[in-house]
């Protein structure tokens, strides 16, 4: 599964994932606390410098994450021109642009495993209420593992239905797909048990 991570050895790549995420959070909070054009412009410049110069990322890596929100931002600016004024609009739009770019820098310079480790660390306080942080990594891995499996099963069902004369019935695809996936989940649960995923002492089987 393709990740948006771009391998590299820059200082930004080597910075700790937790630090980068904390920086992103601080930036988000700061930009909303101080909605002033000079602050927003400075933040935008700092983010671009961090990503392009310090992190040596190709501009395309950042653009890839701006593209999905590009139209929205343009529309937002147009709206502000009509309703409020150009300055408010510029602040609102550039603020979001800076944040999206900063997030893109973190995503492009941080390995998935490092981010998973941060998520597990953040969840650690929840251990007292029974959350097992170590499972986050397993769940993420399982999701990535099963996306192609589910896609393949969907394609196979579509073929089978086409062979029987159905065409483009999407709803009809979903019921057999979900049932197959639920059956798969049942066996997968057994396989996790068989391979020792349930390491912590468990309650005894409740069903007899």
């Amino acid at each position: 599964m393709l990740s948006l991570y771009r391998p590299g050895t820059s200082p930004v790549h080597r910075a700790r994932a937790g630090l980068k995420l904390a920086g992103l959070a601080a930036l988000g909070t700061g930009l909303f606390a101080v909605p002033r054009i000079e602050v927003v412009l400075a933040a935008l410049a700092a983010v671009l410098a961090t990503g392009l110069l310090l992190g040596r990322l190709p501009a395309g890596a950042l653009w890839a994450q701006v593209r999905p929100v590009w139209l929205l931002l343009a529309g937002l600016f147009g709206f502000h021109l009509l309703v409020t004024d150009a300055l408010t609009g510029t602040v609102a739009v550039l603020r979001l642009l800076a944040l999206v770019l900063a997030a893109a820098v973190v995503t492009a310079t941080t390995r998935v495993t490092e981010l998973v480790a941060v998520v597990e660390w953040l969840l650690r306080p929840l251990e007292v209420v029974g959350v097992r942080p170590a499972r986050v990594g397993l769940l993420v891995a399982m999701t990535l593992r099963f996306i192609p499996v589910v896609a393949e099963r969907a394609a196979r069902i579509r073929e089978a239905q086409a062979a029987r004369g159905a065409s483009g019935v999407r709803l009809g695809l979903l019921v057999p797909l979900l049932v197959q996936v639920l059956q798969l989940a049942h066996t997968l649960g057994e396989a996790l048990d068989a391979r020792g995923a349930d390491d912590v002492p468990v309650r005894r089987p409740r069903r007899a």
């Binding site: 769940l139 099963f146 996306i147 996936v181 649960g189 996790l192």
Partner: peptide, 17 residues
């Protein structure tokens, strides 16, 4: 339970697909 882990991961995969 481990089976719940399986359901959760597979449904995340379904949403992705």
């Amino acid at each position: 339970k481990t089976r719940d882990l399986a359901y959760v991961a597979l449904f995340a995969a379904i949403v992705a697909v």
